[in-house]
Amino acid sequence: MSVQTRSTQDPLWARLLLTGVTLTFLGLFLFVPLASVFVEAFRKGLAVYAAAITEENARSAIVLTLTLAAICVPLNAVFGVTAAWCIAKFSFKGKSLLLALIDLPFAVSPVVSGLVYVLMFGANGLFGAWLRQHHIQIIFAVPGMALATIFVTFPFVARELIPLMQAQGNDQEYAALSLGATGWQTFLRVTLPNIKWALFYGIILCNARAMGEFGAVSVVSGHIRGETNTLPLHVEVLYNEYNSAAAFACASILSLLGLLTLATKTFIEWRAGLRRRNS
């Protein structure tokens, strides 16, 4: 920024105008909605707020949301590391196709992501009759919601790790192997420490989406109160019942999660010099 000379600096009026537009736009679209969540949540006082987030259905929604994240995040983290290992460390045919396929879930509408599992495991689905015979419930139950969440958070870890591991190359791993380390030792002692920040970054993003997902989970959940409502779905139910204070109270927990994610993400970017995801 300091290298800018007079000739490459925008005139003062342009700087003021553009900065003003930026502040207004971000204020209107980001900060006002965020602030409104907390104002509405506390509008009826602290007691109503506390009651709304400790009420039984809210508690079970929080537990379910945490459960889903606990199932999905580790699975996608393991997948992300494995996929990054084979894509970044080896050369093989069809690699760019594989990369594109891993990104696929980001391009799919959350509603369609949920629908695909209804077509597979729903009552009229491909495996519907077989599941009914064996009394296995997937749709409108935790397994279906976990699958839908895994689908929408699928690429997060992999796409953080792949560019980083490609940039790091294989030299350190070769050195470790030539000094007699086994494959696992090489991975645990050489590769893993090198990618730990990017891995953490991917996990944070994956977790935020897993806990906040609405559309995909909504399709497969069945909205059974106290059973298959995650926190975002619980917010919807309360909001549609015109219980606005409780809806915003639960939404404020999710907002805090979002803010915490942003703060952690910014910290990692600063700490690891991971300048966004393009470094």
């Binding site: 993003l205 975002p232 779905l233 917010v235 999710l254």
Partner: peptide
């Protein structure tokens, strides 16, 4: 923020 905020929260806000 729009990436980090759950969509349902943004929706009701």
């Amino acid at each position: 923020l729009p990436f980090a905020m759950p969509t349902a929260v943004a929706g009701i806000a």
